[in-house]
Simulated assay, not measured.
Amino acid sequence: MALAREDVNFESIKSEADVEMLVKNMVQTNNMIAHLKDEQLEMRNELKRRDETISKVKDDIQLLKKEKRWNML
């Protein structure tokens, strides 16, 4: 009753609450995107290390083949 007497605009309050909720969701979404980008970077680095390891092993195999020590593996 007291609110009605003071001409409180409930639509305005609802609109402000909706905007606040949207901003909160946007912040959460941006945080999630940043987290996923970090994970993506970590995965790329892991793949790069794996590829380097595979390349080194292939080089070692080629060297062993050249030295006729393939049967030592």
Rank of each mutant, 00 (worst) to 15 (best):
R69P: 01
E67D: 09
S15P: 03
N71Q: 04
L22D: 10
M32K: 13
E52N: 15
L64D: 01
N31R: 10
R44P: 00
K24F: 11
K37Q: 13
K58G: 01
D18S: 10
E20C: 09
Q62A: 15
T29F: 13
K65A: 04
E52T: 08
L3K: 02
R49E: 12
K56I: 07
M72K: 09
A4H: 01
D18F: 09
E6L: 08
M32Y: 07
L73T: 01
I61Y: 08
E11Q: 10
K48S: 15
D38F: 11
L47E: 04
D18E: 15
K48Q: 12
M43W: 02
V27L: 13
R50H: 10
K56L: 13
K24T: 15
E20H: 09
L22M: 13
I13Q: 00
K56F: 07
R50Y: 08
K58W: 06
L63I: 01
F10G: 00
R69T: 01
F10S: 00
V8C: 06
T53K: 11
N31F: 05
V23A: 12
V57I: 15
E42L: 14
L3M: 07
K48T: 12
E20F: 11
V27N: 08
K56T: 08
M21S: 14
L47H: 06
L22H: 09
K58L: 14
K58C: 07
K65R: 08
S15W: 06
L36Q: 11
K65S: 02
D18R: 06
D18T: 12
M21C: 10
N45I: 05
H35V: 04
L41A: 15
L3V: 01
A2H: 03
M43N: 05
R50T: 12
T29Q: 12
N45D: 10
L63P: 00
A34F: 03
L63D: 04
M21E: 14
K14S: 07
N45L: 14
V57E: 06
E46T: 13
K58T: 07
W70M: 06
R69L: 05
V23G: 05
E52P: 03
Q40Y: 04
M1Q: 10
K48C: 07
K37L: 08
A17N: 08
I61V: 15
K24Q: 14
L47V: 11
E42T: 11
H35N: 08
V23H: 09
E20I: 09
K24I: 09
E39W: 02
N25M: 13
M1S: 03
E42C: 05
R50Q: 12
E46K: 11
W70T: 07
L36Y: 04
L73C: 05
V19T: 14
Q40V: 05
E67G: 03
L64K: 00
E16Y: 03
S12Q: 13
L3P: 00
A17P: 02
N31M: 13
